[in-house]
Design a protein around this nucleic acid. Sequence first.
DNA 1: TAGAACGTACAGTTTAAACTTTACGTACTG
DNA 2: CAGTACGTAAAGTTTAAACTGTACGTTCTA
Lengths: 185, 185
Amino acid sequence: MNELADLTDEQREQLLHTRRRAIESIGKNMDLYGITLSIGHLYGNMYFNQEPVTLNEMSEAMGLSKTSISTGMRTLHDLKMINKVWGKGSRKDLYEVEPDWHQNFSDFFSIKWRKAVEQNRSALRKCMKEIETLEEQYSEDAVFMKVLEHDRLKMQESMKYYKWLERLIDSFENGDIFTLIPKEE
Amino acid sequence: MNELADLTDEQREQLLHTRRRAIESIGKNMDLYGITLSIGHLYGNMYFNQEPVTLNEMSEAMGLSKTSISTGMRTLHDLKMINKVWGKGSRKDLYEVEPDWHQNFSDFFSIKWRKAVEQNRSALRKCMKEIETLEEQYSEDAVFMKVLEHDRLKMQESMKYYKWLERLIDSFENGDIFTLIPKEE
DNA sequence: TAGAACGTACAGTTTAAACTTTACGTACTG
DNA sequence: CAGTACGTAAAGTTTAAACTGTACGTTCTA
């Protein structure tokens, strides 16, 4: 269970103390991924573990109920930030952090941003259709037409942005971004 | 005050009904920017306005207290998603949406992600220093050394990612991203 | 200079999120 | 086939966030 069992008490103490700063910082800044502080800490605590962890282990380590850890793990798993591992003879679920953070980042954008962009594009498309219908209907009414044109132009501008964003997300998804901005300097 | 005053009741009705889908969608998906749903709606409602709006106008339009609108406006302003405008003879604060969404996106990353990356890098740097000190101290202890090395390698990997991410953020901030992925297809 | 309009700090209230406890379905074990 | 361990759904509780109402400082107006 405890991969630090072979260390002396003093060593374990020093190690955990040293790790803490990194764990706290990583966990805290995961709100960027829309993740709550305690789930961020969960991830941070898993970060240094060499071996995959179980629900019970993390529950005990963090002083949270097993249910909380369970839902936290699912959240992290949905975002592909941790992996479910099939371990030896254990019938417990085992989890470990996905070590490739570049991949992490890409997945996050694919999952979250792609969905949002598609929803907004769809809504804008429908809205523009309706505006165009109104423009046909009221083509004689100069005052109304001016307002309608304003709305249409505004949405066309937004559409341009969304198309650009989709190409950016594409580049994350297919890895082209790492040609444009290489992993190694 | 009301830029739609010159329209007939029917026209205004149709227009607002048509706009609503876009407003809802835009507002809803702003949780990606760490923004609450109602502030997202505030932004969505401002989106179509041709003229800058005041606190009172939006308060009435959204059925929220002026205080709520005030704090919402500040949040949006901090993220540079809206601009404070100095209008004619009015002494009310006037706000309008920043129309350049590419710029919006860049600013968001500069503000939010840059800070997080710097914090994490700083924490990791300190943590690595301490690990190295321990490695000197316990250089004879093979068991402990193995654990320490594992931690150090893990953090070095993370540092690579953060350096990459900083270069990505740089490209947003200085606009290079729009050379790599052009606004126009 | 008194009075009104404006934006926001602050304290209090309501609503939503996080977390726990209990209970249940499933899959191993003897 | 009972008995046990495991993960999670569901309901209940606690904690935090969102929102409101009041009050105050500032700035403009008469």
